[in-house]
């Protein structure tokens, strides 16, 4: 499938599909948060998910990262159907994420927080670390180096020893991104990475996201409310409204889609 030119209306680059969601339906009791939605995420692209409050965007991200389990539909990752998985198993597949309401380890330093992002890369267990000191130490050093690179990359050297709980909101978001990046994920999921930031912080974050995508070639799926940001950053956009998908395509296509204009762009938002 991946060898075929881009299927569907979107004029996206014909890169291989990394993740495909097929007919996902997710219910909470009587509420249908996601209604029969299908879309794909291609390798190396920045895929945005937009829509009004309560549209089901976070729910979709939670399905991808294994926090929610859809009642219907299939999740395909790297050409294989993914069975129902726990979030930690999804993380071990190489899917990292941030949260809409920031989930950091407040009691730990920035460095330790970012270090936890490497847990999936730490092979040596308790006994190796106690008994087999050499390789375990080498591994620790390698992990340290990877973490320091990311800390440099996101320009948070100054705060590396600061307990995360004391940081202002904007920096917390950045540390959360650093932790996700530390896993060197194949797919990076960002739930409103710029929410609540001022203009300058938003610009920084946009630049980081573009750089991550550029330099590491990381595939990114992100949820964002700021339309300007979405148009600038993303290769393709999925538009959701009341749990349904109402648009899918390049930013230009989506912006021209009448249904999207009605449902989303027309509505005054935040």
């Amino acid at each position: 499938m991946s060898a075929l030119p881009a299927a569907g209306p979107e004029a996206a680059p014909s890169r291989p599909v990394l993740m495909e969601l097929k007919n996902i339906t997710l219910r909470f009791g009587g509420v249908e948060a996601i209604k029969d939605i299908s879309f794909d995420i291609r390798e190396g692209e920045i895929r945005a998910i937009i829509g009004p409050n309560g549209a089901g965007k976070s729910s979709m991200l939670n399905v991808i990262s294994g926090f929610y389990h859809p009642q219907e539909g299939e999740v395909w990752f790297r050409g294989r159907r993914r069975p129902a998985m726990k979030p930690y198993q999804v993380a071990r597949l190489g899917i990292a994420r941030t949260f809409q309401n920031i989930a950091l380890f407040d009691g730990m330093s920035v460095l330790d927080n970012v270090m936890t992002g490497r847990i999936t890369h730490m092979k040596r267990g308790i006994f190796a670390q106690g008994v087999w000191k050499g390789p375990a130490e080498r591994e620790e050093v390698a992990n340290r180096e990877a973490v320091e690179r990311i800390i440099d990359f996101l320009e948070i050297q100054r705060i590396r020893k600061t307990p995360v709980g004391r940081l202002p909101y904007g920096l917390k978001k950045r540390v959360e991104l650093a932790r996700a990046l530390a896993a060197e994920p194949k797919l990076l999921l960002l739930d409103e990475p710029m929410a609540g930031m001022n203009v300058e912080e938003k610009e920084d974050m946009s630049r980081f996201i573009l750089d991550v995508n550029d330099e590491f070639g990381t595939t990114i799926a992100l949820i964002e409310h700021d339309m300007g940001v979405v148009m600038d950053l993303s290769d393709r956009v999925v538009v959701m409204d009341y749990g349904r998908k109402i648009g899918d395509g390049t930013p230009a296509e989506v912006r021209a889609n009448p249904e999207v204009i009605d449902a989303y762009l027309g509505v005054a938002h935040d």
Partner: peptide, 12 residues
């Protein structure tokens, strides 16, 4: 510290 965050970095 945080169950959700722990899950998201691959901890069972």
């Amino acid at each position: 510290d945080d169950h959700q965050a722990a899950l998201s970095v691959g901890i069972s």
